[in-house]
C-alpha cells in the first residue's frame, strides 16, 4: 500500500468513526441541535411579523382581509368553545411543510407542559397530528397527513372504520371494500375523541378492483398554519 493510499484509507476510517459517533450520540445531539436552532427560530418569529412591510399594497390588502377573516373565525370559535379549551395549550407554528422534507411541523410551546403523544388541534375540533418529540420549548409534530403515516379512524355518519394513510400536504387516502357506505363530504373522525380528522373529497371505484379508493383532505390548510393547540390524550377521551 502506497503512502497516498494509506493516508486516503486513514481519512475514510476517521470519517467512518465520526459518522458512527454521530449515530451513537444522535439522541443527545438532537437536543443540542434544538438548543442551537431555538434562538434562531425565536428571532425568525419576530421578523416574520415585520416582513409584511416589504410587501406591495395589493398583498397588504389581501393580508389585511385574511387577518380580518381569521379574527372573525377565532372570535366565533372562542365564543362556542370557551370552556372546551381550558386545558389546551396554544403553540405557534415555526416550521411547516414545505420547509421540512419529512412534512413535519415544529411548534413553539412557550413553557407549557407537553409530552410525546399529545394531540395537536386547530381550533378545538380539528385534529391534525401528534407530538413526536419535545426539546427546548419546541415540539416536533407528526401530521396525520404525513406521507406513509397510517392511523385508524371512523366515518362519522356511518361508523365505518378505515385505515387512513397520509399522502402529504393535508391529503390522505383510504381503501374500503366495494359498496361500503361512504360518500363525498363525509367527515372522518378520531374514534376516541370524536375530533374531526378529514373530509372525504373523492370516492372512486374501478370495475377490476374489489376496493374503493377514498381521498381525504384535512379541513385546514397545513401550509398556512399559524397557531395550533396541544392537548393531552386523556383530556380528549369521551
Amino acid at each position: 500500500m502506497s503512502l497516498h493510499q494509506k493516508s486516503k484509507f486513514r481519512i475514510v476510517v476517521v470519517f467512518g468513526i465520526f459518522i458512527g459517533l454521530l449515530f451513537l450520540l444522535s439522541n443527545m445531539l438532537q437536543s443540542v441541535v434544538f438548543f442551537v436552532a431555538s434562538p434562531a427560530w425565536k428571532i425568525g418569529e419576530i421578523f416574520s411579523g415585520y416582513s409584511v412591510i416589504l410587501h406591495s399594497k395589493d398583498s397588504l390588502l389581501q393580508e389585511n382581509k385574511r387577518l380580518k377573516e381569521q379574527i372573525t373565525f377565532l372570535q366565533a370559535e372562542s365564543s362556542i368553545h370557551n370552556n372546551a379549551d381550558n386545558d389546551s395549550s396554544k403553540a405557534s407554528v415555526v416550521v411547516r411543510p414545505p420547509q421540512s422534507l419529512y412534512g413535519t411541523l415544529i411548534v413553539r410551546i412557550k413553557d407549557i407542559p407537553v409530552e410525546k403523544g399529545d394531540y395537536v388541534l386547530v381550533g378545538s375540533n380539528i385534529m391534525i397530528g401528534m407530538v413526536d418529540d419535545v426539546s427546548f420549548g419546541f415540539a416536533k409534530v407528526i401530521l396525520f397527513s404525513l406521507p406513509g403515516y397510517t392511523q385508524n379512524f371512523v366515518v362519522q355518519r356511518s361508523g365505518i372504520p378505515l385505515v387512513v394513510e397520509g399522502r402529504g400536504s393535508g391529503n390522505m387516502r383510504a381503501r374500503l371494500p366495494y359498496g361500503a357506505d361512504i360518500e363525498v363530504h363525509d367527515v372522518v373522525v378520531d374514534p376516541l375523541s370524536s375530533r374531526i380528522i378529514a373530509e372525504v373529497i373523492d370516492v372512486s371505484e374501478e370495475d377490476t378492483d374489489t376496493f374503493m379508493n377514498v381521498l381525504l383532505k384535512t379541513p385546514v390548510n397545513i401550509l398556512e398554519l399559524q397557531d395550533v393547540y396541544i392537548r393531552a390524550q386523556e383530556s380528549l377521551k369521551i
Binding site: 419529512y102 407528526i142 404525513l146
Partner: peptide, 12 residues
Amino acid sequence: MYDLLFSVPVTH
C-alpha cells in the same frame, strides 16, 4: 443535523 431537526420514522 437536518435529519435530527425534522425527521420522523415513517414508512414512506
